[in-house]
Structures are given as structure tokens and as C-alpha cells.
Design a protein around this nucleic acid. Structure first.
Lengths: 184, 184
DNA sequence: CCTTATATAGAACGACCTTTATATCTTAAA
DNA sequence: TTTAAGATATAAAGGTCGTTCTATATAAGG
């Protein structure tokens, strides 16, 4: 048994609470209570709150890419549009209120470099993902295209906070089509 | 003298610090120190930290619209593109690291409705602004267009955190042109 | 059986937080 | 000159925070 059931409970409770109320808006006491775990159990698995934040971010990144990969590979014809749609589904199910990684960057910038770097690396991976897609298509301005879609997904996430994932995705899909089927 | 010099110092210090480290990442002690003010002076002007947050948001909203209005009216021909550019300038000068209103919504959702409502009303005002512009143009799908540009600005703000305002604005301007000059 | 890992409850620590209280000082208008 | 408002310094209350400590319990593996 590599990962204990208690550690999983802690990570899940922490991810949910951090996402709902922000990293600084949640105390360890609350996490411990909701994970139904003793104080020292937390400190046996994570050496500090900030290390817990790091692990939560890593877990969320993994979940995000698993979710996206699984969906995107269903449809291979128009990977760009499908990525937008898949991201929209992720927002609907798991990200109704902003982006945890962006918040981590903002909350810990200049305070905790480890946390900030983990969050930033997730974001650069998103850009790299679109760059790979764009090159495969063989566009001449593939780097620009990748940036457009990164910006589009970021915008959709923000809009989700304002009007829900369904409407946000509806608009971002329409924009995505304009971008894909538009002369460069 | 309607607003005292100390109150202004408090609001400015608070806005800067809240923006840099988040509402919960800054204590009143730090705000008081950097505003060079006594504790009771803060409580003479603001009845609590959360009320201070409200006033900071109101001040920032005013500054944002003053900034945008002043610039947009310089060029009246293509108001959409110019709004994107003006927003980019705002990002460059005052918003290098995410959006304060979005953070307020996320940090205080379910905790403080007053703060959340102030932040949300700023966002709905942004949408209304674009709706007005779109109607003036006389597009048939003016409501969609307004949403596209709201999403575009939100995306640009997020991208600024990731790669700076200059590059973010460069890409969002290119996207804006594709959207404006694209068949509906 | 013994060891080791994992878990438990509960108290306590010092630091920091927001807020209130008290008492003094400046200043400008009435 | 008196008065009232604004600002000051200092202290402390009351709470929460992250973290550590102690001491005990359980269960699986060698």
C-alpha cells in the first residue's frame, strides 16, 4: 500500500476546500475535520501547510491532464475545437469558480517560489500542448495560434466564474471557430 | 476637506498590498505601517477590514473606468479594438498580476456577500459596456459580440500574469481583429 | 513475538490577527 | 478662546493560526 487512505482523504479535502475558499482562507483545522483525520496524521504525510498546497496542486494538475487527454483522443479530426470543448467540460464539473493555479501564482508570488513554480509550470505546459497541436496541423504561424488558444481557455475559465461554464463555453467555442477558420 | 489625506493614504496602501498579496495575505498592521497611520485612524475611517476591502474595490473600479474612458474617447472609429488596447495599457501599468475583482469574488464567495456583489457588479458593467458598443455598431449578433470581447479581456488579464502585459495584449489584439473582421 | 508504520486524542506553544479601550495631542473653525 | 473633530501612541482583549509534543492504540510483516 503505497498511498494510505488517510493521505488520499487529506488531499481530496484540501483540494476541495482550497479551491472553494482560497489557500489562505482555509485552516488546517478545517481540513483535518473534513478529512476525518488526526492532526499528526497530516503532519506525518506533509511537513507543512505549504507542502500540502504543493501536493494538492500536483494532484490537480494530474487530474486535469487525465481528464483532457481522455476526452481529446476521442475525436482526432479537429483537436483545437475539441480541446476547447473538453476544457469546458472540465470547468462544468470541477472548476466552477476560477483557476486554482492562477490563484496559487498570485497568492504566493514573492512568498513561496516552490508553489509558484509548480503552478507556472502547469500553465506553460498548457501552452506547449497547444504548440504541439499547432505544429501537427502545420500552420505557418503555429506559435501565434497556440497563444490564441491558451488565451481563449484562460478567458473561458474566468468567464465561468461570472456566468457559469455552459454559457462561457458556448462563447469560447464560437470564438475558436472564428480563429481556426480565419485567414492568417 | 471632504476626504482626509490619511484616508487616501490608507486606501492607496491597501489597494497596492491587497493586489500584491491577496486580501487574506495582508494584515492591517502592514497596511497601517505603509500608510504611516495609527491603528485607530484606520478604524475611524473604516469600521472593519472587510469594509476597507469594499472601499478599495470601489476605488479601483473608479480608477479603471476613468482610465478606460479617457483613452477610448481618443479614437472613436474602431471602439472595440481600442478598448482592447486601452485595457492592455491598464494591465501594463496597474494590473501586472491578475484581476483584483475576480479574486474578490473567489475569496469571499459564500463568506461576504457585500464584497462579492461589488466585484460582480464591476464585471457585469464591463459586459454592459461592450453591449452598448455593439449596439451602436448595429451588428445583428451584438450580444454575442459583447460576450466575445468580455471573454477576450478576461483572457488577456490572465495571460498577463503568465507572460506580461505586452505579449498578452499583442495576442489579444490579433484575436480581436479576427473577431471583428469575420463573417457572422 | 517483535518491530515498524500508521493512526489516534488532546493539550499546549508562540505568533499573529482583528478589534476595542484609554488617554493625549494638534488644529482649525466658530 | 472655546470647542469639536481628527490623529496620535500604547496596550490589551480575544481569537485563530500553524506547529509540536506526549502518550496511546492498532494492525500487518518478518
Amino acid at each position: 500500500m503505497n498511498t494510505s487512505v488517510k493521505k488520499v482523504a487529506l488531499l481530496n479535502a484540501a483540494e476541495r476546500l482550497f479551491y472553494e475558499h482560497g489557500f489562505r482562507g482555509v485552516g488546517l483545522k478545517q481540513i483535518i475535520r473534513e478529512a476525518d483525520v488526526a492532526t499528526m496524521t497530516l503532519y506525518n504525510h506533509f511537513s507543512s501547510k505549504e507542502h500540502l498546497v504543493e501536493e494538492v496542486l500536483k494532484q490537480r494538475e494530474e487530474r486535469y491532464w487525465s481528464y483532457l487527454d481522455a476526452l481529446v483522443q476521442e475525436e482526432y479530426e479537429t483537436p483545437f475545437l475539441f480541446a476547447v470543448k473538453a476544457h469546458g467540460k472540465w470547468l462544468e464539473e470541477e472548476s466552477y469558480q476560477g483557476d486554482m493555479f492562477l490563484r496559487a501564482i498570485e497568492d504566493y508570488a514573492g512568498t513561496n517560489n516552490d508553489i509558484e513554480n509548480i503552478a507556472r509550470s502547469h500553465k506553460s505546459r498548457l501552452l506547449r500542448y497547444f504548440q504541439t497541436l499547432a505544429k501537427r496541423i502545420g500552420e505557418d504561424n503555429s506559435n501565434d495560434l497556440a497563444h490564441y488558444f491558451t488565451l481563449l481557455l484562460e478567458g473561458t475559465t474566468s468567464m465561468t466564474t461570472l456566468m457559469g461554464a455552459e454559457k462561457a463555453t458556448e462563447y469560447s467555442m464560437a470564438m475558436a471557430k472564428k480563429i481556426v477558420y480565419s485567414p492568417s
